[in-house]
Amino acid sequence: MTQDNAPLHATGPAPLPGYDGRGFTYVARPGRVVFGTGTLAQLPAEVDALGASRALILSTPQQRGQAEAVAQLLGARAVGIFDGAAMHTPVEVTQTALAVLGDIKADVLVAIGGGSTTGLGKALALRTDLPQVVLPTTYAGSEMTPILGETEGGVKRTQSSDRVLPEVVIYDVALTLGLPVAMSVTSGLNAIAHAVEALYAQNANPVVDLMALEAIGAISAALPVIVREPGNGQARSQALYGAWLCGICLGAVGMALHHKLCHTLGGSFGLPHAETHTVILPHALAYNAPAIPGVMARLARVLGPDPARALFTLAAEGGVPTSLAALGMPGDGLDRATALALANPYWNPRALEAAPLRALLARAQAGAPPMLEERA
């Protein structure tokens, strides 16, 4: 018998490039995906196929207009709109939405937007087990995962449950054409973070590895084009395709240091979600680099010889913040953030140590690029 993650051919010839012979477990997540341009028109048929007839439409306040357009498309199937979705899925917002849900007796949730709206839909599904249809307008990727992060009392807690996995996701490239450039860049790098961590997750496997590298390559190639030509449909399609794959990766394997730090900074310091992922990603990858040489070599094939620096440059050239200070992180909060990140131990390929973590956060706070010294 072979132990988990032990090479299957340790006594045979050296493995070929690519799959390294590790044992693994792979679990495919259920869900229906409709991808294309103009696919929003299929929403009524998808709701009907779920056997539902009373939809509550979810959005943020800023996307109320899109929610109203969805309601018009659904006609009599739409029985209400809740436009209070907020970052980090505050429990108090969920409680308010639950009251609306009960009043209108909805039998399906239709979420249009990014991670905030998807998170609210998941939080409601966790409590009601109602089916969800998600219409992503960003590259968040959370619509493909059974993961829910909720904030209460200044702390963000994450859980995984099949109850929160959406039943249907309709990707319509047309819904992303108006996504502002800065939000496109941070949302895209947020998605890339899911795929990067999937490559070195404790339960990584070769199926997810293939999707992760494809996703990282697709988004990293599309973002510079979107920066120059925001209405470029081909680049938008490629970015959305990559985001879909990134979401699958996050939903199939575990998380490590990067997501722990981002959940800490977002939930306890109120930092914006995608922007925080954008700032932390290069530094978290640099921290783990000594423990994952094989992953770094594969990332180099799609990002260039220094993957961590390439991700930092992608953000900088996209014109988005590269420092935590620019996101509102107080300088005197770094010690607390370090302590919170070390609380409730979790798996990471490199051991978590207070001093190197504090140095990582200090570099991210200042907006300095990831450095070799940080990886020593």
Rank of each mutant, 00 (worst) to 15 (best):
V133F: 10
V134G: 12
L135A: 14
P136E: 09
T137R: 13
Y139Q: 03
Y139M: 01
A140P: 05
G141P: 03
S142D: 01
S142I: 00
M144I: 03
P146I: 00
P146T: 01
P146H: 01
P146A: 04
L148K: 08
L148T: 09
L148C: 11
G149N: 06
E150W: 12
E150A: 12
E152F: 06
G153D: 02
V155Y: 09
V155W: 08
V155G: 00
K156T: 06
K156E: 05
R157G: 05
R157C: 08
R157K: 10
T158I: 14
Q159C: 12
Q159V: 13
S160M: 08
S160P: 00
R163G: 03
P166N: 10
P166A: 08
P166W: 06
E167G: 09
E167M: 06
V168E: 08
V169S: 14
I170A: 09
I170D: 09
V173W: 08
V173S: 02
A174P: 04
L175Q: 15
T176C: 08
T176L: 09
L177M: 14
G178S: 13
L179E: 06
V181M: 07
M183F: 11
M183G: 13
S184A: 15
V185T: 14
T186Q: 01
S187H: 01
S187P: 11
S187Y: 04
S187L: 07
S187N: 10
L189T: 09
L189N: 13
N190R: 14
A191Q: 05
A191I: 06
I192L: 14
H194C: 04
H194N: 02
V196H: 04
E197G: 01
A198I: 01
L199F: 10
L199I: 06
L199P: 11
L199C: 07
L199S: 07
A201G: 08
